[in-house]
Each structure stands twice: as C-alpha cells, then as structure tokens.
C-alpha cells in the first residue's frame, strides 16, 4: 500500500515538472506569435524566473527578506563580462583588470557558471556575517550590502568601468537558453526545498525558538540557502548582461531589487509556484503597460499613459496585494498533480 507520505512526496515532485511545462508553453506561445518584441519579452521573463526562483530559495524558505540579491546579479553579470569580452576590448575598456582575467577569452556557458559561482562565493563570505543577525536587522544589513556593492562598482573605474556602461557583450541569450536556466533553477530550488536542510529552514521560519529547541542550527541552513540563491541570482545577472549586451551598476540596484521583490510578493512568497507565477503575471502586466505608455489607437483616438506610470501602477498593485491578499496570488499553494493521479494502483484499491 502506498503511504500518505509517499503520495505527498510524489505530488511535490510533480511541481517542478509542471512549472517547467508551463514555462515551455509560455515560450512556445511567445514564439508562435512571431513578434520579435514578444520573443525578447519571453527571454527577459525567463531570466527573471531564474533570478526570482534563486531569490525565493532564500527568502521563501527562511522568511528573511533580502534587499541584497540584486548585488549578486551585478557580480554575476560583471564576472561573465570580464571572462567573455575580447582581450583587446578589455585592454581599452577596463585597463585595471588583473593579467589572468584580462587575457581570458572563455566560452559563454563556463562564464555564466563562473558568474554564479563568484556570486555564491561572495554570498558565503558576506552571509557568514549578515546571517548572524535576526530578521529585520538582517534585512537592513543586506540593504547595506547592496549599497556597498553599488558604491564599489560605481567607483572602481579601471576594473568595472565605473558608472559608464560596459558594452559589447555577446548577445547569445535566446528564449531557449533562458528556459534552460530557468528550469535548472526551478529543479534545484524544488530539490533544496524538499531536502532535510530546506525543511529545517522552513521550520525556523515558522517558529525560531521551537526549531532551535529541536536541535536545528538556523545559521547553517540559512547560509546554505543564501549561497545557493546567490548562485542563481548571479547566473541570472550574467544572462541579463548577455541578453541586453550592455551592463552598468545602476542596472542592478534599487529598481531591480524592487522588481524582484514585487514579483515575489505578488506571486506569493510562500511557495515556489508563487515565485514563478509572480514573474509571469508581472512580466505580462509590465509588457501591457509598456504598450499602453506607447499609446493604443482605438478608432481615431490614441490613448497613452504618461511615462513613468508603469512603476507607479506596479507599486500600487503591490500595496493592494499586501493589504487584500497578503499571501500573494498563489497563497502558499504549489502547482501539483492531484493525489489520486500519483497514488498508484495499490492505494486506489483500499
């Protein structure tokens, strides 16, 4: 007979598969429309899925809001740029790079992995300090970390190019590449959430004291999740750089932080499906608003929203969600197959 526990585990295992299928359908639908702008929007959405799912690995499981994950995107994007730009370009654009990096001419995939790896390494070191703090103080410390990275990146001109942009990144990110990363992120996030460490981390989220009394080392599990989540934010940042082709420190500062938080909060921070659905819902809404800002012609009249109203509408939507549906669109539920589909024959007979 299949036990209740096995059924639950099987149901949980269907979540990443279903989410991957939803994203696949999203890409196919976007490509079927044949519009270049829509295909670009799809790729950007999937990059955001990679980053927000990474973000969720920490925020969703630990319950600590981080304002610092955009900085990991920044680190990933620049590391990938350092490794893939042509050496002669680097000699003129970024003369301060160390010899080894200046001569590097890596293929794009190892560079994206290195970007994520570098972000994870930085997360391991800073997280070791920041995560000793409790809830709100930790959140503010991550904010200080974000500002610190931005200050360094904006001023260390010989190495990062300062506030002027680094240009000429190989634009290899198609919707399919982004889909691959997004599915990888979702799979890893689901495996982590189902692991003993993920469970322990959620226990500390629900009740810190009870978890500690049960012998859970909060700090260790948080640090693991922080590092893992930084990897995907870093890789997502690298993808973003290679998607736009131009990077600059302010592209990975407050507005990206806000966008990632808004996606997570609107989708629902309580579940992996919430993270993915939040990105999809918000990306589609943003695309619609951008088109409205350009103007929509109905008959003879043209309606257009004033520029800048997109952020205002998003912010107001976020506040309304926080007031009226604080758990987000998915309200902590996961997308999964119903129990009777995964139960197997034995349990159906009993």
């Amino acid at each position: 007979m299949t036990s209740q526990h096995t059924i639950r585990r099987r149901m949980a295992a269907t979540t990443p598969v279903l989410l991957a299928l939803i994203l696949l359908a999203f890409v196919l639908a976007a490509l079927a429309l044949g519009d270049r702008a829509i295909a670009r929007m799809a790729a950007e959405t999937l990059i955001h899925v990679t980053m927000v799912v990474g973000f969720w690995v920490f925020v969703g499981n630990s319950g600590v809001v981080s304002f610092g994950h955009a900085a990991f995107g920044c680190i990933g994007a620049y590391v990938s740029a350092w490794l893939t730009l042509r050496p002669d370009m680097k000699a003129t654009l970024l003369p301060g790079l160390p010899e080894m990096i200046a001569a590097a001419d890596w293929p794009v995939l190892p560079a994206a992995l290195a970007g994520g790896g570098a972000a994870a390494l930085v997360a391991l070191v800073t997280g070791a300090a920041i995560l000793r703090l409790s809830g709100i103080a930790a959140s503010i410390a991550t904010f200080a970390f974000l500002a610190m990275v931005n200050t360094i990146w904006a001023n260390w001109t010989p190495v990062t190019g300062g506030t002027s942009s680094v240009v000429g990144l190989d634009r290899y990110v198609t919707p399919w590449v982004a889909l691959g990363w997004a599915v990888l992120a979702i799979t890893v996030a689901a495996v982590h959430a189902a692991s003993a460490s993920g469970l322990a981390l959620r226990a500390t989220r629900e009740d810190e004291v009870a978890a500690a009394a049960s012998g859970i080392d909060r700090y260790r599990h948080r640090l693991l999740a922080f590092t893992l989540s930084a990897f995907f934010c870093g890789a997502g940042g690298a993808l973003m750089g290679h998607f736009i082709g131009v990077i600059n420190p302010d592209g990975f500062y407050l507005s990206l932080t806000f966008l990632m938080l808004a996606m997570l909060v609107i989708g629902g921070v309580g579940s992996l499906s919430g993270a993915v659905m939040g990105v999809l819902a918000l990306s589609i809404a943003v695309e619609a608003l951008v088109r409205l800002e350009k103007g929509v012609t109905v008959g003879a009249a043209t309606f257009a929203l004033p520029p800048g109203s997109q952020e205002i509408i998003l912010a107001v939507a976020m506040i309304l969600i926080l007031i009226f549906r604080p758990a987000g669109l998915m309200a902590g539920r996961e997308v999964m197959l119903p129990a009777r589909w995964v139960a197997g024959r034995a349990s159906r007979e009993t």
Binding site: V64, V65, G135, L261, E311, L314, A315, V316, M318, I319
Partner: peptide, 15 residues
C-alpha cells in the same frame, strides 16, 4: 507582519 510592512513601505517609496 513586520516583513510585509517593510515591503509595503518599499512599494510606497517607489510609487
């Protein structure tokens, strides 16, 4: 929760 309040104030700031 304090976390939701914090996120709400962040959204208000952006608006």
């Amino acid at each position: 929760s304090p976390v939701a309040l914090m996120v709400g104030s962040f959204a208000l700031g952006v608006a």
